[in-house]
Simulated assay, not measured.
Amino acid sequence: MARIYINRLSAREREQLVGRRFSIDELEMLHASLLRGQRARMKRLRVLMVVLPLGCLALGSMTASLAGWTAAVLVATAAILVMVTLLLLLTWYLAVGLYARQFNDAVDEGYPELLGRLHL
């Protein structure tokens, strides 16, 4: 069965960040590691953000070449592009945005002297 992976901060990780269990150097190394992972995810998402809509447009144009540019084909193509856009936004939030927000909030709460400095 297919599963959707949601990248989120675990309760244990949040507890360690809020409880100041990391030294500043350890926190900076953790931040650098998480930032590398986030950049890799964003790189893959950028590819998807280009390829997926282009694929939908190609399929829409192939359909239109057979049926003509009727109102139904235009509406269907536009509706599919809107759905793809919404799914890509949701994918970004679940893969990158949620974890970054949770990490940033935990760091700000546990390390107020670093407010805004080690954000993802």
Rank of each mutant, 00 (worst) to 15 (best):
1 M>N: 15
1 M>D: 15
2 A>I: 13
4 I>M: 15
5 Y>I: 15
7 N>C: 15
7 N>V: 13
8 R>G: 14
10 S>Q: 03
11 A>N: 09
11 A>I: 03
12 R>S: 12
12 R>V: 12
13 E>L: 12
13 E>S: 11
16 Q>G: 06
18 V>C: 11
19 G>Y: 04
20 R>I: 08
22 F>H: 12
23 S>M: 07
24 I>E: 05
24 I>N: 00
24 I>C: 00
25 D>Y: 04
25 D>I: 03
26 E>V: 13
27 L>C: 07
27 L>A: 12
28 E>A: 12
28 E>P: 06
29 M>C: 15
30 L>R: 14
30 L>A: 06
31 H>P: 05
32 A>W: 07
32 A>M: 13
33 S>H: 13
33 S>V: 10
34 L>A: 11
35 L>V: 04
38 Q>A: 14
38 Q>H: 06
38 Q>E: 08
39 R>M: 14
39 R>C: 11
41 R>A: 09
41 R>P: 12
42 M>D: 00
43 K>V: 00
43 K>R: 14
44 R>G: 03
47 V>C: 00
49 M>I: 06
49 M>C: 15
50 V>R: 06
50 V>A: 12
50 V>S: 08
50 V>N: 06
51 V>I: 08
51 V>D: 02
55 G>Y: 01
56 C>T: 05
56 C>I: 00
57 L>T: 05
57 L>W: 10
60 G>I: 10
61 S>K: 08
62 M>F: 05
62 M>W: 01
63 T>H: 15
63 T>M: 10
64 A>S: 09
64 A>G: 12
65 S>P: 02
66 L>R: 11
66 L>Q: 13
68 G>Q: 09
68 G>N: 07
70 T>S: 15
71 A>E: 11
72 A>P: 01
73 V>F: 03
73 V>R: 02
74 L>S: 09
76 A>N: 11
76 A>K: 07
77 T>Q: 07
77 T>D: 09
79 A>P: 12
79 A>D: 00
79 A>G: 11
80 I>K: 11
80 I>F: 06
81 L>W: 11
81 L>I: 07
82 V>F: 08
82 V>L: 14
82 V>N: 01
82 V>R: 02
83 M>H: 15
86 L>I: 01
86 L>H: 08
87 L>Q: 11
88 L>H: 09
89 L>D: 03
89 L>N: 04
90 L>R: 12
91 T>V: 04
91 T>G: 05
92 W>C: 10
92 W>Q: 06
92 W>A: 10
93 Y>A: 03
94 L>A: 13
95 A>G: 05
96 V>Y: 02
96 V>D: 00
98 L>K: 14
99 Y>T: 14
100 A>N: 11
101 R>I: 01
101 R>Y: 07
101 R>V: 10
102 Q>F: 01
103 F>L: 05
103 F>Y: 14
104 N>W: 04
105 D>K: 14
105 D>H: 10
105 D>P: 03
106 A>F: 03
107 V>R: 08
109 E>R: 11
109 E>D: 09
110 G>F: 00
111 Y>G: 02
112 P>A: 00
114 L>P: 05
115 L>G: 09
116 G>P: 05
117 R>D: 00
118 L>V: 01
118 L>E: 02
120 L>Q: 05
120 L>H: 05
120 L>N: 03
